[in-house]
Amino acid sequence: MTERALDHVGIAVHSLDESLPVFESITGHKGHGRERVESQGVEVVFLGNGEGRLELLAPTRDDSAVARFLAKRGPGMHHLCYRVPDLGAELARYRAEGRQLIDEAPRSGAAGHLVAFIHPRSTGGVLTELLQAGGH
């Protein structure tokens, strides 16, 4: 099995405008790449570069997964994301292992990447995102 680098840690927040200055102060990094991901009902911004950066996610509509997460659990760690070379192959591998997938096929994510999520029931209680860079 090939090692997969941690791409980012997703943190759910109610408001990017309120949370970004706090995380900029904590990390010493300026937020970058702020964008709305309409298909997921979120606005995101990243802090840091390379492996282990942070992604702040704020809901843009009440029916988004992040809005439901915040209503149930409040702000905090939302997911871990790992960079993979072939997202379709990874999904097939996880499916063959009997893991529960949230996404049966890759979908568009932030910064033009392809992403898919694995259900926390299959990953020790941690929502896991897989990301294929430049997937389009």
Rank of each mutant, 00 (worst) to 15 (best):
Met1Leu: 13
Thr2Arg: 10
Glu3Cys: 05
Arg4Leu: 15
Arg4Glu: 11
Arg4Phe: 15
Ala5Lys: 05
Leu6Gln: 02
Leu6Thr: 04
Leu6Arg: 00
Leu6His: 08
Leu6Lys: 05
Asp7Arg: 03
Asp7Met: 10
His8Leu: 11
His8Asn: 07
Val9Tyr: 04
Ile11Tyr: 11
Ile11Met: 12
Val13Met: 12
His14Glu: 14
His14Asn: 13
Leu16Arg: 11
Asp17Arg: 14
Ser19Arg: 14
Val22Cys: 09
Ile26Asp: 04
Gly28Glu: 03
His29Phe: 14
His29Leu: 10
Gly31Ala: 05
His32Gln: 13
His32Val: 10
Gly33Ile: 13
Gly33Phe: 07
Arg34Gln: 14
Arg36Tyr: 09
Arg36Leu: 01
Glu38Val: 11
Gln40Met: 09
Glu43Gln: 13
Val44Gln: 04
Val45Thr: 04
Phe46His: 10
Leu47Glu: 04
Gly48Ile: 14
Gly52Arg: 05
Gly52Glu: 04
Gly52His: 09
Arg53Ser: 05
Leu54Phe: 10
Leu54Ser: 01
Glu55Ile: 00
Leu56Trp: 00
Leu57Lys: 01
Pro59Gly: 02
Arg61Gly: 00
Ser64Gln: 06
Ala65Gly: 11
Ala67Phe: 13
Arg68Tyr: 10
Arg68Gly: 15
Arg68Asn: 15
Phe69Asn: 06
Ala71Lys: 15
Ala71Asn: 12
Ala71Cys: 11
Ala71Leu: 15
Pro75Phe: 08
Gly76Cys: 06
Gly76Met: 12
Met77Trp: 06
His78Ser: 10
His78Asn: 15
His78Gln: 14
Tyr82Ile: 00
Tyr82His: 06
Arg83His: 06
Val84Gln: 03
Pro85Cys: 00
Pro85Asp: 12
Asp86Asn: 09
Gly88Glu: 15
Ala89Ser: 12
Ala89Asp: 08
Glu90Tyr: 07
Ala92Asp: 11
Tyr94Ala: 12
Arg95His: 15
Ala96Thr: 10
Glu97Arg: 09
Gln100Ala: 14
Gln100Phe: 10
Leu101Lys: 01
Ile102Phe: 12
Asp103Glu: 04
Asp103Lys: 08
Pro106Ile: 06
Arg107Asp: 03
Ser108Phe: 06
Gly109Cys: 01
Ala110Pro: 00
Ala110Gln: 01
Ala111Gln: 15
Ala111Ser: 10
Gly112Asn: 09
Gly112Tyr: 14
Val115Trp: 15
Phe117Met: 03
Ile118Gln: 00
His119Lys: 06
Pro120Lys: 08
Pro120Leu: 07
Arg121Phe: 02
Ser122Asn: 01
Gly125Ser: 07
Val126Lys: 09
Leu127Asn: 02
Thr128Pro: 05
Thr128Ser: 05
Thr128Arg: 06
Glu129Pro: 08
